[in-house]
């Protein structure tokens, strides 16, 4: 799939963004919005990458449980950034619950995070009434459907005059901005894979309106509502770069967690299973890296939709400033 728009041979693009996952789409968008001439290149005719399997939670405060403060800070930009560009950003917060015997996990989570309040889970999500005595609500957080958001952002890019080259071997003609995810390991040897496995189920008997995280000492999980009673259940974190389908263990753990959240998930139909490889740097902190003649937006780890807006704006600011110096006209 190559968009009709292309730049003529005698007037090439300023920037060639490699990789049309969430990082590439956001970075191309930030550049195009600054008036740059941008092409977005992906060798896959239907680009997927790790963000294809994402939960789509814009939850900087929840992520702060394990992520560095930089993610909590930068991630707070994500909600407004996405809402200004794509439809379907639901600002309904995040609900965190724990089974009664794992109450200590909830207390620990509350200590490790901020911007939350104690709630009766059933008051927020009637489907959970009577199942959990107490929960944490992070009211400023949001979620979106990652695949729909990616499609909307790609359409928007075309509208901004960017050229999208998917599938064909396209020689980049502008300054290279490398957003290839794990594939950038060939130039960033510090990158490693953290495998994540997820499921999408259709559960007509369950209604949830916001992402719910279930804390469990061994397999924490989250359930993100999508349209039409579909739910994304994620996600494992395995220090492995094995590709291939979801394992039976992962499926059992994810489903048993979903079942703990609501028994009606036992009757759900499993629509899809998926496994992706998250690109991660040793400190798991996503960042913009300038190395050689390339600028990388790298190591998004589990923060693709949360951190791409901030990194995209950072990279675009660096690149367009350079460009202005190179071409004062």
């Amino acid at each position: 799939m190559t968009s009709a728009a292309d730049f003529p041979p005698d007037f090439p693009p300023d920037f060639s963004v490699l990789g049309a996952g969430v990082a590439g789409l956001c970075t191309a968008t930030a550049l195009a919005e600054r008036g740059a001439r941008v092409e977005l290149i992906d060798t896959d005719p239907a680009p997927r990458g790790a963000s294809w399997y994402a939960g789509g939670m814009l939850a900087p405060f929840c992520e702060g449980e394990a992520a560095p403060e930089a993610v909590v800070q930068a991630g707070q930009l994500a909600c407004d950034w996405w809402a200004a560009r794509v439809p379907g950003v639901a600002r309904r917060g995040t609900l965190v619950v724990a089974p009664p015997r794992d109450r200590a996990e909830l207390d620990r989570y509350a200590r490790a995070t901020r911007a939350h309040e104690r709630v009766d889970p059933g008051a927020l999500e009637p489907a959970l009434a009577g199942r959990f005595a107490t929960g944490l609500h992070f009211p400023t957080e949001a979620h979106l459907d990652p695949r729909a958001a990616r499609r909307a952002l790609a359409d928007r890019l075309r509208g901004l005059g960017a050229a999208l080259h998917f599938g064909a071997a396209t020689e980049p003609r502008g300054r290279i901005v490398d957003c290839r995810g794990l594939a950038a390991r060939d130039r960033l040897p510090d990158l490693r894979a953290v495998r994540g496995e997820m499921l999408i189920v259709e559960a007509p008997d369950v209604t949830l309106t916001r992402p719910v995280r279930l804390l469990h000492p061994r397999f924490p999980c989250y359930v993100v509502p999508r349209a039409d009673h579909r739910f994304m259940i994620g996600a494992t974190m395995v220090e492995s770069d094995l590709t291939g389908p979801v394992t039976a263990r992962a499926m059992m753990e994810l489903l048993s967690a979903a079942y703990t959240l609501h028994p009606a998930f036992a009757e759900a139909q499993v629509i899809e299973t998926g496994a992706g490889l998250r690109p991660a740097l040793p400190d798991n902190l996503p960042r913009v890296i300038e190395r050689g003649d390339r600028v990388f937006v790298a190591g998004l780890h589990r923060h693709g939709f949360l951190m791409s807006p901030h990194l995209a704006e950072t990279a675009a600011a660096i690149l367009t400033k350079e460009n202005a110096h190179a071409d004062p006209a």
Partner: peptide, 28 residues
Amino acid sequence: PSPAVLAEAIAASGTQVITVSLRREGPG
């Protein structure tokens, strides 16, 4: 939280022996 934090923790603890699991991560 990350391999970087793990490396710092190992250094701070002064430990000389670390255990690593293989079952789940496997050859990947």
